[in-house]
Write a protein that binds this DNA or RNA. Sequence first.
DNA 1: CGGCATTGTGTTAGCGCTACCATGTTAGCG
DNA 2: CGCTAACATGGTAGCGCTAACACAATGCCG
Lengths: 343, 343
Amino acid sequence: MSNKRESTRRRRGSEQPTLQQVADAAGVSAITVSRALNAPERVNAATRLKVLATVERLGYVPNLVAGSLASSRSRFIAVIVPSLANAVFIEVIHGLQETFEREGYQILLGNTDYDIEREYQLIRTFLGWSCSALVTAGLRHSEACRSLLAHWDNPIMEVMELGDALDLNVGLDHHEAGRCMARHLLGRHYRSVVYVGACLDRDYRARMRFEGHREVLHTAGLEAPLIELDQLGSLDAGAAGFERVLAQYPDAEAIHFANDDLATGALLRAQRLGMTIPRDIAIAGFNGLPLGQHVTPRLTTIRSPRENMGRLAAEEVLKRLDAKRVTRRRHDVGFELLIGDST
Amino acid sequence: MSNKRESTRRRRGSEQPTLQQVADAAGVSAITVSRALNAPERVNAATRLKVLATVERLGYVPNLVAGSLASSRSRFIAVIVPSLANAVFIEVIHGLQETFEREGYQILLGNTDYDIEREYQLIRTFLGWSCSALVTAGLRHSEACRSLLAHWDNPIMEVMELGDALDLNVGLDHHEAGRCMARHLLGRHYRSVVYVGACLDRDYRARMRFEGHREVLHTAGLEAPLIELDQLGSLDAGAAGFERVLAQYPDAEAIHFANDDLATGALLRAQRLGMTIPRDIAIAGFNGLPLGQHVTPRLTTIRSPRENMGRLAAEEVLKRLDAKRVTRRRHDVGFELLIGDST
DNA sequence: CGGCATTGTGTTAGCGCTACCATGTTAGCG
DNA sequence: CGCTAACATGGTAGCGCTAACACAATGCCG
């Protein structure tokens, strides 16, 4: 039926069978097919089987775009990270993906390259896709971004760091992590300690760790020299940073690196230069990547529960989406000082 | 106007301003707003400015779901990889993302965990999103997947390996890579060479490299023993594999690892055991990850152009989407033997 | 066996946008 | 100055699906 009228204008559509065609072939109405697929328990078992068989036979693939428009819910989760080059974010993404995919959500991944303006653009686009939730790394956003999100009433999860969040928050205290490592180094009686970071204006969490570190050193009446590299965490940058410390601070007893990539790069470079760690100089990192535990000497670092952070964040968002109890808005996943043999 | 009738049933919609509201506020028709945003050159400059100002003022965010439904084109690119744990795929994704995002495409990332059935499910879902193209790692797909894709007429790009592709293909010859490294090892006069891989049934590209390796050894009249680990590439697995070789093949002169993670794990373990590479035993890898070039001795490996592979794949897909010249369907990105000091 | 909840299915009216065609308006030409 | 082409804008009709309601048919109660 429903040939409407013999209109001369036709839209092309996608050739694919539609829900209506499945319905016709199965001898039921469109809505019944829809229910058989999306809410099976609301359809009689016999009808359901008949419908599913027809779906199979026609090779019907639901048009999720149409479904999303009609229901104004897509099963998308926007995930925004500042970098893919950093293993930390990969692991967080992995945790998120695993948990969300199990519940039938699809991740929309955005990469800001540590650019807060780019974050705004990405969020704008993602809102256009009627995402069910937004997971973004960090608490710093542009003003435009904040006002965009202010009128949005789906869950917003900010991960990595703790603080004054828009909505949900899972992370750890980077100031405290910086303090923790600085205290460890002082406890080992190193007095001349250099902090080496990379692009601290963009990787501001590394700057927060530096601030914690500096606070502890100052309290102990010590200087807290800083070397800033212009290349984000990588083994290369770490090696370069190591040599800069040797040149600029020949009396340095220890180096506190902003992350494990830098620290490991330094450690491997030291090895190649024939130096002995920590006798000649001590090295510490941050993250607790496996790599640091495989080098000799084992790297002293701080382990953050990365995959767990992703998983926990995803679980909290899912709880919110299920409209279950709201539980805590803020979760401190903590960290753990991992004392290796490099300090 | 257009209050239709005072119908009692109302759909909730999303509160957000719609294209129509922008049009009313700007005193133009909806289609003009649409054009001002999506095809600015087709609208008079003055009108365009007026519309864009109104968009800004109302904080309008285009509903991309509705747009996709109406045009049956989404600006999504489905990208399917077998793993996120492997740095290789991260780099390929990075290359893809950079190139596609610049052209306004959004990546839909799927992770199969090396499960070919999961690939089918993901592709089904992604087709439901009317993706503009599909990029998937590898040439092996389930039958269901093949027949699903047979009736799909958007670009399909298979990356990583070369062969009998569905459509476009960018990759390298893994058999040849395996042969290449085996020849190198024979050239160094190692006669007893063990290949160590992980889950070769799933990581079948590593198996292809093994087959190339075996072929060369057999031709030289040598055995080609294989050790298979049950944990995918990681430093841990490499360390464990190294110890298994020592125990099982005490006379081994060289180990050819399926990838750099394994090889580096082995190298670092050897160091910790106080062994000297390559004097006690030679080690070779595959991938050319930066890590391998930072350890001492530098790892002998094969470098594959990973980010480039992603970029090239994306560019070829974009050409196809622009309906430009179809160029070559198959691109061999090649590889490079990187002779370090570990062999 | 009438009244009321429960279950299963259908009808209708959009979701917000763009393709398609139509129409008006200006420029370009001999 | 009439004719065509190019430009600028608008009206209408869906894209394929689901929310909201409607309405039978059945089960269960006193």
